[in-house]
């Protein structure tokens, strides 16, 4: 965008209005992607005509979709261990991904503490093989928790 700025805005203001207030898109650029939030944990939005909510912290525009490219660059896991050096929670993402591929949920949960993942995105960012680690963990965590809830609900009956 032309000038990155801070705004105090009411809930319900759309991103498009915010962008206009900040001076619009930089000349010669077409945004390929808009994020509600920052580049790491932000959620992509399909259009700018989305109202902000009380938990919206930022609008990020990307002229270049890095994820699209990363999908093409993806190679096999090298077991380089860069993900485990970067993980703020001390997990070993590469082994967690292996456990997911082998559908070994028990190892994922008890031995690798997979549910401790905070989905910060650091492992995906640093992975030289461009593997979508965080995305896998988010999904797996949701699945495991859903299954647990179902089991609990079943037990209560």
């Amino acid at each position: 965008m032309q000038t990155p700025s801070n705004f105090i805005a009411r809930d319900g203001t759309t991103f498009a209005q915010l962008l206009e207030a900040s001076g619009g898109v930089k000349a010669g650029c077409t945004p390929k992607k808009a994020l509600s939030g920052g580049p790491m944990m932000g959620v992509a939005v399909a259009s700018l005509d989305v109202p902000i909510q009380k938990n919206t912290n930022a609008l990020t525009l990307l002229a270049d979709d890095r994820v699209e490219k990363a999908e093409k660059e993806m190679t096999a896991c090298l077991h380089c261990g860069r993900c485990s050096t970067i993980c703020p929670n001390g997990l070993v993402p590469a082994l967690m991904a292996d456990a997911i591929n082998m559908k070994n949920w028990e190892r994922y949960e008890t031995k690798l503490y997979g549910l401790e993942c905070i989905a910060c995105g650091s492992c995906t960012y640093i992975c030289p093989a461009r593997r979508p680690l965080t995305q896998m963990f988010k999904q797996t965590k949701a699945e495991i928790l859903a299954r647990k809830r179902a089991a609990q609900a079943g037990g209560r009956k």
Partner: peptide, 11 residues
């Protein structure tokens, strides 16, 4: 606009 799960940048 493109949609995908984050993070949206890579090393």
């Amino acid at each position: 606009l493109n949609l995908s799960a984050g993070p949206h940048v890579r090393d």
